[in-house]
């Protein structure tokens, strides 16, 4: 479904942000993209929906080439790819509802969106998503009145409104506290499972990535240096991605962590020891 082939991005400054990346993300797969700051994670996912123009290579979504599209065709391709942002990127001064409805911009004509006269079908859908992310009573609140976690939920609802076949998620938890981070990640993964959505999630937090993603891709200096299941993410692999450091503490997370945190600290503790032995 999403296939990148030999994707390269060189900025006008000469920096090679993404170098010869080839990648396939099948339907319904949640993939985490990890790597140090400046490894090209953000650039890579922005190349997919061409917020950043790739220098060479190809991006195929459901068998359609995206890199050659222009104008209206590009906008039609973009609405198939929902994007969720690091600092939420909500339109701060608009209401929650307007923000969610803005996910339909690619489908609804200018004057209808200008007058905020969306088709009732979209409005029903927006109410459903707001209920799903738990923000029903915030419909008419302005986006800048919400907390970080609430804002990201609005961002998720907006991305879903696009009826995407893939989610591009850029550091969804970077501005959130640890508990909210888990809730948001869990929500994204649940929604992907419900709707058979593929997702590429850029994430700094290796622990969260292991906890929620089915597949992990490590990026270093614009190139893929690791691609595999979370189980195979050994200290050696992390050293390859991030450089020399004592990684054992980072990996001592367990599979049962995605369950509510009160599953039992003791069990988690022993589990983590097992994990280290496996590693």
């Amino acid at each position: 479904m999403l296939a990148l082939h030999a994707l390269t991005k060189r900025y006008p400054t000469g920096d090679l942000a993404v170098h010869n990346v080839s990648l396939e993300v099948p339907k319904g797969q949640v993939m985490a993209l990890i790597g140090p700051s400046g490894a090209g994670k953000s650039t890579l996912i922005r190349c997919v929906n061409r917020l950043v123009e790739p220098t060479s290579g190809s991006v195929m979504l459901d068998g359609h080439e995206i890199t050659a599209l222009g104008g209206a065709a590009l906008r039609r391709a973009r609405r198939r790819m929902g994007m969720i942002f690091q600092e939420f990127a909500l339109v701060e001064r608009l209401t929650v509802m307007e923000n969610v409805l803005s996910g339909r911009l690619g489908y609804v004509g200018f004057w209808k969106t200008f007058l905020r006269r969306y088709p009732q079908r979209d409005i029903d859908q927006a109410f459903r998503f707001l209920e799903r992310v738990g923000l029903t009573e915030f419909v008419d609140k302005r986006a800048d009145a919400l907390s970080g976690g609430q804002r990201q939920r609005v961002g998720i609802a907006r991305a879903l409104m696009q009826e995407p076949s893939i989610l591009l998620v850029d550091e969804p938890t970077a501005a959130l506290d640890p508990k909210t981070s888990r809730q948001i990640m869990r929500l994204i993964c649940e929604l992907c499972a419900e709707r058979e959505l593929a997702a590429i999630i850029n994430i700094h937090d290796v622990g969260l990535a292991q906890m929620f993603a089915a597949r992990i891709v490590g990026l270093c200096k614009g190139e893929i240096v690791f691609d595999g299941s979370p189980r195979n993410l050994t200290p050696e692999a992390l050293t390859l991605i991030y450089g020399e450091e004592d990684w054992h503490a980072t990996i001592k997370r367990d599979e049962d962590e995605p369950e509510p945190a009160d599953a039992g600290a003791g069990a988690g503790g022993t589990g983590s020891d097992d994990r280290q032995l496996v590693a």
Binding site: L51, R78, V91, E92, F110, T113
Partner: peptide, 30 residues
């Protein structure tokens, strides 16, 4: 103005006018 709001509107597949109406206008209007 905050470029991420513009970027978000661009990512939804909105046209140039929708970009102005949703991404720019709310930010600069007051």
């Amino acid at each position: 103005s905050d470029p991420s709001q513009l970027e978000a509107m661009r990512a939804t597949g909105g046209s140039w006018w929708q970009l102005i109406n949703y991404g720019v206008q709310p930010q600069v209007m007051p």
